[in-house]
Design a protein around this nucleic acid. Structure first.
Lengths: 411, 411
DNA sequence: CAGGTTAATTCGACTCTTGAACTATGGCTA
DNA sequence: TAGCCATAGTTCAAGAGTCGAATTAACCTG
């Protein structure tokens, strides 16, 4: 339990505040920074000087102020270091390398052979992609701050991250340890839904919001809960498993083994399955889930069966969102994920109405429900924010984790 | 946004750490405190000296250490100040006055005439109880740190707490302002479920746990979510409305206006209502809800209808708990509230099993489900912790909230 | 009573923020 | 073009706080 605080923590904290303001906001002058953080001008100058010295921050143009010395704008140095974000899905691995301005410099996509990939195959693909992406962008490992990985399943954050994915048979896979054997880069692993949520919070619909839930609807259903600006993890960081909350007691069986889960009703697979049943088993048009869902939505205007399925889906999804409103009381719910976008594009007003019917009036009134802005490829981007978030939280402390060693001068 | 930190915050924080350790733990020596907080002995001595000087902390006996100077134990001075906790229920107001060791010194119960009490009547009863309880215990207002109030409905914490209770027609009642007109004591208002949860966390089943959910089942159903040791509030502090999550899509109507809410199935009223329906309208034995519920549970061993109702209740409650497990991933779920105790006394193992069936395996394995230890009268106790929690968080800063004013010395 | 052991206090060294004085850099005006 | 004003950024002494080592306090044992 880290409770004590010493003068050094002060500095770290204030560095962190300044750096975060610069990273997450527009370029700012030292004055602005003082305003934003409450620090005195002197301190801002002092700390900023340090940060510039270290190369983390650079000056970025002047802006003249009517009749006085122009203010110099500051921003984070995009080239100071790089980060790599990896999206490990059940079918493939996407790896992207970013500079510190989070501009992508290189991308690598790799397939995983089997639909139930083994940990070893994932590790192999991840390590290979790592090298490839650095080669593509001509970035040395020493110029990489760290690697963030968003992975399916739940990730337990202990001394080393461990992955559980009940549905594909991963039980306590020590992914972090396995990767560390193959690379010296710092590794951060988190659940893919959480990293995608992180991306929406930093760069998408959630900018500037402190309490939000990113509701992800794809083939399955998940959520990322953000409270007070940070991802809610719970005791062992598996919090936010929205997809498997009971929505219809004793309803449709779910792949998790339970019945009546939200996912079985509003996940794309569940929706299409219900459609299929309503058509008495006749196949649903479309070659893959995405096109099938699009076809269903298109058919709803003319075909009463499709219309009923869509209506029901709206109701179920609204009820699921109402649960989020009641339990988490967010300012903002972001509907994302590919199926979420497909459904929300046309139906968002109706989904909102359905949620309003079932949520408590007061908290619902405080909540905005909106569509995500980033698309599903944001998993890698969000994963890449993990090392950055750590950098910001540490205030980019120069000294390593341990204590600086000072030898006495020789006599 | 309070971001900057100055040397003073340091001191406040460390005072807070020491004081909290003393308040929440056993009496400790200065050495122990150093260990617990990580502070150096010198600093501990220094701060403790200050706290003793101010009368907040007293020495409490010696404990000899084989062959050395005995350690002096320290504890919070129970008589330093007092706190008042008030439970405002829909039928009555219970007021208790505690010393700083949280021993009750006086209690006052008052009825509210109507089942839909007006804000004015509540204010009147609260103010009257305040005076009476202080008179009973012969405690001056100046010796009272503050008043904590746990109230039905949801409480929005703005600059002044506002109460919303849809079911009894309270819409944005400015309870704090109304009370401030009648007393100069500092007032803290929170939802009753949250204060009861706070009591379980500090003095009951939740001691030492950082991530817990206190699930309250009475006539209605609510929850208090604790993460990282503090109550989860969400954006406008109405988070944790567990009772109105959809459990049975399009199920029984609920008094909140929606359908299929958990409360309509496992709240005492809902359970008895289901029992009544199963008996085709024949009245349920028992004079009030509590005895009726007890009768139902007793009948379950012989009467198949009662048995079915109980079975179903176990299933519904299990599903509700599973939702908590999946979404919040707590270490501990505390089942409390009078109906929760009644149900849990016999049925806890079966409730656990029902939750296990519906929760995700991994997070469920990390969660303990247990019964509350405090009983429903803990609302007032929990409310009384509100001013104490504030005191601890502020590190019992002597200076008032604002900035200490320093006048220049006269010339 | 001397020596050992553990607890608590004292004090110099170091770090950090503040606030005020000071310097830098530009526009404006006579 | 020189002087004045306005705004941005830097420097530095004062104040506050923690650490660590040395010192003092309190007790036990032989």
């Amino acid at each position: 339990m880290q409770v004590k605080r010493t003068v050094r923590d002060l500095r770290r904290h204030n560095r962190s505040a300044l750096l975060s303001s610069l990273f997450l906001g527009e370029p700012q002058s030292r004055q602005d920074l003082g305003q934003a953080t409450g620090l005195s001008q002197g301190t801002v100058s002092n700390v900023v000087g340090e940060l510039i010295e270290e190369g983390l921050v650079v000056e970025a143009g002047l802006v003249d102020s009517d009749g006085g010395r122009p203010r110099t704008l500051l921003r984070v140095n995009p080239g100071y270091t790089h980060v790599i974000g990896i999206d490990v899905g059940e079918t493939g691995v996407r790896t992207e390398l970013f500079d510190l301005a989070m501009r992508p410099l290189a991308t690598v996509d790799r397939q995983l052979g089997s639909p139930r990939p083994s940990p070893e195959s994932v590790v192999e693909q991840v390590l290979a992609s790592l090298h490839e992406v650095m080669r593509q962008a001509s970035v040395e490992p020493s110029a990489v701050l760290g690697v963030g990985i968003g992975v399916f399943g739940t990730v337990e954050q202990g001394s080393e991250a461990t992955v559980y994915a009940q549905t594909i048979g991963w039980e306590a896979v020590p992914l972090e340890r396995m990767l560390r054997d193959g690379t010296a880069l710092p590794i951060y692993i988190d659940n893919g839904a959480k990293t995608q949520g992180q991306a929406e919070m930093w760069f998408g619909a959630g900018r500037g919001v402190r309490h939000a839930v990113i509701a992800l609807v794809g083939s399955g259903v998940g959520a990322a809960v953000v409270t007070n600006g940070t991802t809610y993890r719970g005791a062992t960081s598996s919090a936010g498993e929205w997809g498997h909350t009971s929505l219809v007691y004793d309803g449709r069986p779910c792949r998790c083994g339970s019945r009546g889960c939200l996912e079985a009703y509003v996940g794309a697979e569940g929706v299409l399955d219900r459609y299929r049943q309503a058509r008495r088993g006749r196949a649903v048009p479309g070659t893959d889930e995405a096109s099938a869902l699009a076809a269903l939505l298109a058919a709803a205007s003319s075909n009463p069966i499709a219309a009923r399925i869509v209506d029901e889906t709206v109701g179920y999804l609204g009820a699921g969102l109402a649960t989020l409103v009641n339990l988490f009381n967010p300012e903002l719910i972001v509907l994302a994920g590919w199926a979420g976008h497909a459904l929300g594009a046309e139906l968002l007003p109706r989904i909102r109405a359905a949620a309003a019917e079932r949520a408590l009036r007061h908290p619902f009134g405080q909540t905005t429900i909106t569509l995500g802005q980033l698309g599903p490829d944001a998993v890698a981007l969000g994963a890449a924010t993990l090392p950055v978030a750590d950098l910001l939280a540490r205030g980019a402390a120069t000294e390593p984790a341990g204590r600086a060693l000072r030898l006495p001068a020789p006599a």
